[in-house]
Write a protein that binds this DNA or RNA. Structure first.
Ligand SMILES: [Zn+2]
Ligand SMILES: [Zn+2]
Ligand SMILES: [Zn+2]
Ligand SMILES: [Zn+2]
Lengths: 134, 134
DNA sequence: ATAACAAACGTTATATTATAACAAATTAAG
DNA sequence: CTTAATTTGTTATAATATAACGTTTGTTAT
C-alpha cells in the first residue's frame, strides 16, 4: 500500500478536486476564482489548503511558475523528490517518473559533505508537439 | 576562453557588484534598498538589471527563494544548467559544481521524447555546520 | 557625421503572489 | 465530556513582479 490516505478537510478537498481535474498547473488566484462558488472567499483559505496538500504529497509546486499541479505518482515520497518537464512554448508541465533519475538524485552527494533530504528539478525545453510545429 | 565578457550598463554593473560581494542570495527589494544610494530608485530598474544578468549567466535565480546569487562557475552555459544546495536551517545556498551531475542531467531523456535545453535543480538539507548543531 | 535602430533608462502606476493577526468553529484524543 | 489541535473565516497588509510611456544612450551603416 504505497498510497497515503489522509483525511482531507472541506477546503483541502475542494482545492484538490480542482487541481486534480485540471489539465495543467494552476495558479493560486486562479484556484481562488474557481472555488468561490464553493464558498472559499479569501486567498488565505486557498494558500492554507495548498500548504497542507503539498505537505502530504498530493500536489507539488512548480517553483518557476508559482503554480500547483496534482501528483500523479503514487510513490513520490511525500514531495521530497520531484522532477518536472516544462515546455517553454505551450507551458505543458509533466511530472517525470523515472526511477533511475530519482535514485541518482536521492543518492547524490557533493564534496560539501551535505546529505540532501529533498530536491526539486525542473527541466525546460520543447515538448514533442511544439517541436514539430517549429 | 570560457569567460564570457559582456559590456554591462551602469545599473547592471551596480546590481552585479552588490550581488557578487554578498555572502548569500539577495532578494530584489533588498537589492533595491541597497542600491538607492547609487541612484537606482525603482523596482523596475532592479528587475531589468536582474533579467539581463541572468540572461548572460552572471547571476542565477534561486526559484524556491525568489532570490538572486552570483554565478561562481565560469562555465555555467549561460545559466542553462544550474544546481544548488540549500540549507533548510541557515539558508546557506551554494552552487553545485559537479561535472558528472551536469553531464548526467544535460543528457537526460525521458520516455516523452522531449529533449531538454535547460534545467534547474535545487537540493535541500542541512549543511555541515547545521548538522553538527542538531 | 548623421540617420536609423536597438538597448537601456526613468517614472508612475498597477498586477500578482503570499502572509500576519486574531477570533470562532470543528475535529481528534484522552 | 473536556482538552488540545487543527481548520476556518475575515480583514488587512506585505512581498514580488510587470505594464505602459516617453526619453536617453549606444551601435551600426551609409
Ligand atoms: Zn509527485
Ligand atoms: Zn509544448
Ligand atoms: Zn552558475
Ligand atoms: Zn546550515
Amino acid at each position: 500500500m504505497t498510497q497515503k490516505q489522509e483525511h482531507l478537510s472541506k477546503n483541502q478537498q475542494i482545492v484538490l478536486n480542482l487541481i486534480e481535474k485540471a489539465k495543467g498547473p494552476l495558479k493560486a488566484y486562479s484556484i481562488l476564482y474557481n472555488v468561490q462558488k464553493r464558498g472559499i472567499k479569501a486567498p488565505l483559505q486557498v494558500y492554507r489548503a495548498l500548504e497542507k496538500l503539498i505537505e502530504i504529497g498530493k500536489i507539488h509546486k512548480i517553483e518557476s511558475k508559482n503554480a500547483f499541479i496534482a501528483c500523479k505518482n503514487s510513490d513520490c515520497e511525500i514531495s521530497k523528490a520531484t522532477a518536472f518537464s516544462i515546455c517553454n512554448n505551450c507551458e505543458h508541465v509533466k511530472e517525470i517518473k523515472n526511477s533511475k533519475l530519482s535514485k541518482y538524485l536521492s543518492n547524490f552527494e557533493d564534496n560539501s559533505g551535505m546529505k540532501y533530504k529533498k530536491y526539486n528539478l525542473e527541466f525546460f525545453g520543447l515538448c514533442k508537439i511544439c517541436k514539430l510545429k517549429q
